[in-house]
C-alpha cells in the first residue's frame, strides 16, 4: 500500500471517530456552561443513540428513519431526565448536580439493559456496509457520512447559538445567570433545553457510530470519558474547542493504534491528553477563568 494512501485513509478514519468525540464533547460543554457541572450521563446518551436506533431499525427497516427517530427520542429523554433529576434539586451547586448525573447514568444504563438486552446491537450504515476506493484510497462510506452529519450538526448548532432567541438566551444564562433572570429568562427552562441539546448531540453520535463499532449497553462510560477528554483537550466550556479537541483526539488515537499498537489505543490518547494538560491546564482554547466554575 502506498504511503500517501495510508495517510489519507488514517486521516479520514481519525476525523470520523474524532467527529464522534467532538459531538460528545459538545454535549459536555453545553451542560457545563449552564451549570458548572460535569454531566456523567452524556456517554449513556451516546450508547442509547446506538441501542435505540438498532431497536427502531428492527421496526422501520430504514436506517435513515431509525437514526432520525432515535436521535429525536434521545433529545426528548434528555429533556425528561433534566425535569426528573436535576430540576428537583433544591441547592443546584455544580458538585451536587454532577453527583446527580452519576445516578442518572447508572439508571439509564440499567434501563437500557433491561429493555434492550445485553447483546451487541448493530445495523448497516447509510450506504450499506460499502467501502469505496478512489485512486487506491479505501474508506468506509459510513466514515464519510459521520463527518458530513457532524459538520451539518455543528453548523445548525452554530446557527442556533448565534441567530435564535433561545440560543442567545442559553448563552446569556451561561454568561451571567443572575442577569439572565433579571431580564426575564427562566433559568430552569434553559437548563432543560441545555440537557435536551446535550442529549441530542450524544444521541446522534451514538446513532451514526454504531454501524462501525457496534454498541452494547455498557459502552456509555467509555464513550463518555473519550468525549470528556476531548472537551478537556479543547478547554472545558469552549464550544469550538470541543470540536478541535474531538478531532485531535480521534486523529491521535487512529495514528497511535496504526503506528504503535491498537492495544495501546486508549493509553496513547490519554497520555497525549495528560501531556497537553500539563502544558496548558485549561486546555488548548480554555482560559483559566472558565475553569473556576
Amino acid at each position: 500500500m502506498d504511503g500517501t494512501n495510508t495517510l489519507v485513509q488514517l486521516v479520514i478514519a481519525g476525523l470520523s471517530i474524532g467527529s464522534i468525540y467532538a459531538l460528545i464533547a459538545l454535549g459536555f460543554n453545553i451542560v457545563f456552561k449552564c451549570t458548572g457541572a460535569m454531566n456523567f450521563a452524556q456517554g449513556e446518551w451516546v450508547m442509547m443513540g446506538g441501542m435505540v436506533t438498532a431497536a427502531l431499525f428492527g421496526v422501520f427497516s430504514s436506517v435513515g428513519l431509525a437514526v432520525v427517530t432515535a436521535t429525536v427520542l434521545i433529545g426528548a429523554i434528555g429533556l425528561v431526565s433534566e425535569r426528573i433529576t436535576i430540576w428537583p434539586v433544591r441547592r443546584p451547586d455544580p458538585m451536587t448536580l454532577t453527583l446527580v448525573t452519576v445516578g442518572l447514568a447508572i439508571v439509564s444504563r440499567s434501563l437500557v439493559m433491561i429493555f434492550l438486552g445485553k447483546m451487541p446491537a448493530g445495523y448497516s450504515g447509510f450506504s450499506g456496509t460499502d467501502v469505496i476506493s478512489i485512486e487506491g484510497v479505501t474508506v468506509q462510506t459510513q466514515s464519510l457520512w459521520i463527518i458530513a452529519i457532524t459538520l451539518l450538526f455543528l453548523v445548525l448548532m452554530h446557527f442556533f447559538f448565534e441567530r435564535t432567541v433561545l440560543g442567545k438566551a442559553l448563552r446569556a444564562v451561561s454568561a451571567d445567570p443572575q442577569a439572565a433572570s433579571l431580564v426575564g429568562i427562566p433559568s430552569s427552562q434553559m437548563l432543560m433545553l441545555a440537557f435536551g441539546l446535550a442529549a441530542l448531540a450524544g444521541g446522534i453520535a451514538g446513532a451514526i457510530v454504531t454501524p462501525l463499532t457496534l454498541m452494547t449497553y455498557d459502552q456509555g462510560a467509555t464513550l463518555g470519558f473519550k468525549g470528556f477528554s476531548a472537551a478537556m483537550l479543547g478547554g472545558i466550556g469552549n464550544l469550538p474547542g470541543a470540536v478541535v479537541g474531538g478531532l485531535l483526539l480521534g486523529l491521535i488515537e487512529t495514528f497511535g493504534s496504526f503506528y504503535i499498537s491498537s492495544h495501546f489505543k486508549d493509553a496513547i490518547s490519554f497520555a497525549v491528553l495528560l501531556l497537553i494538560l500539563f502544558m496548558r491546564p485549561a486546555g488548548l482554547f480554555g482560559r483559566v477563568e472558565v475553569v473556576k466554575a
Binding site: 432567541v165 433561545l166 442567545k168 438566551a169 448563552r171 446569556a172 454568561a175 451571567d176 443572575q178 442577569a179 439572565a180 433579571l182 431580564v183 426575564g184 429568562i185
Partner: peptide, 26 residues
Amino acid sequence: VPEGRHVFKPMTVQENLEMGAYKRLW
C-alpha cells in the same frame, strides 16, 4: 439594573439589548 452592571460579557452589545427584550421575543 443591578449593582455592578452584570452585562452579558461574552455577548455583543446588540445581543445584550435583545436579551433585555427576551420576554417580547420568545
